[in-house]
């Protein structure tokens, strides 16, 4: 069952009065996000990730195409969709002079919470976000990490079935990012929430996402689990060797070896198929009387897939 079903979604931004400029943000994106999954949208800057997320969240109207979110059309039934989703951005910002409980109360009321139910919800969210100690601090005096936690708490105020996270760990210290990622993973686990997130951090995507879609120039270039993507893109496996003598430039000329690079005293050979080429390389090294001191075979990193796709 799909939480989001997008078909042929297109969006072009127009600006300027005398000199009309057009920027194609989405050029016919079709995508399905299964319920209860964490779905990652990856892509370089300006790829159209935030635009797509904003259309899903009813903040932006598409020029073309159809988007159904939790069974409702995002254009014709936007109100029904809005009740059941929420969003947090990495660069989120709230009214500067309000304190965390006041911000949560404001948005809670917009979702129909009031009285004791609202108070309990605010306390629960402050506690969950470890913001209780900062409840009397004005928003503009909170640190970036605390602001980010508050943004996530606000996004949970209506207990959404679908949560959009736009670069949720942007600009955070590594330890804060790790804790936030744990919290996101827990949300899916404990509440069976569907989460769609955009991120620049490949490790974050690999660690959190059940499925990933790569977007570039407003199109989905590839889609699948992290390992499926690595296989799909076929940028090759890596055989890393520590040799004595350390150099063997002729390796790059062997059949099936796509390229060889020297990295920290090792040679990393990208090959079309490690299973097939490993034995051939070892045999060649043995024939040349080169001693293999250490050997590692690994799949390419998601980051390498990203770089390949973003080219």
């Amino acid at each position: 069952m799909l939480a989001i079903d997008a078909r042929d979604v297109a969006k072009t931004f127009r600006s300027g009065v005398l000199r009309r400029r057009e920027t194609v943000a989405l050029a016919g994106v079709s995508l399905g996000v299964p319920r209860g999954t964490i779905f990652g949208l990856l892509g370089p800057n300006g790829a159209g990730k935030t635009t797509l997320l904003s259309i899903f969240a009813t903040l932006l109207l598409p020029d073309r195409g159809q988007v159904t979110v939790l069974g409702h059309d995002v254009v014709r039934e936007a109100g029904a969709v809005r009740r059941r989703l929420n969003m947090a951005s990495g660069n989120a910002s709230f009214v500067w002079a309000l304190k965390p409980p006041e911000i949560l109360a404001f948005y809670g009321r917009l979702y129909g919470l009031s009285g004791r139910r609202l108070r309990l919800r605010i306390d629960e969210l402050l506690e969950m976000s470890e913001l209780t100690a900062h409840r009397r601090v004005a928003y503009n005096e909170l640190s970036t990490g605390l602001k980010q936690r508050l943004a996530l708490a606000k996004a949970l105020v209506n207990d959404p079935e679908l949560l959009f996270l736009d670069e949720p760990t942007l600009g955070l210290d590594p330890d804060v990012s790790v804790r936030l990622r744990e919290r996101i993973a827990r949300l899916r686990r404990e509440r069976e929430m569907t989460i769609v997130l955009t991120t620049h951090y490949m490790r974050e995507a690999e660690q959190l996402c059940d499925e990933i879609a790569f977007i570039k120039s407003g199109r989905v270039l590839a889609r699948g689990t992290a390992s499926e993507l690595k296989r799909q893109i076929r940028i090759g496996d890596v055989i890393a060797l520590r040799l004595d003598p350390p150099d063997a430039p002729w390796l790059a000329d062997m059949a099936g070896v796509l390229r060889c690079t020297a990295v920290n005293g090792r040679i990393e050979c990208t090959v079309d198929d490690a299973e097939k080429r490993l034995a051939e390389i070892l045999a060649a090294l043995h024939a040349e009387a080169v001693v293999v001191k250490d050997i590692q075979v690994r799949e390419p990193e998601l980051e390498e897939v990203f770089v390949e796709l973003a080219r």
Binding site: A57, T58, R82, S93, F94, V95, Y107, L110
Partner: peptide, 17 residues
Amino acid sequence: LYDVWSKSVKHQFLAPI
């Protein structure tokens, strides 16, 4: 204007109001 100045306009229009 409070939301424009604090750049938080989208949050209130994301809500079902």
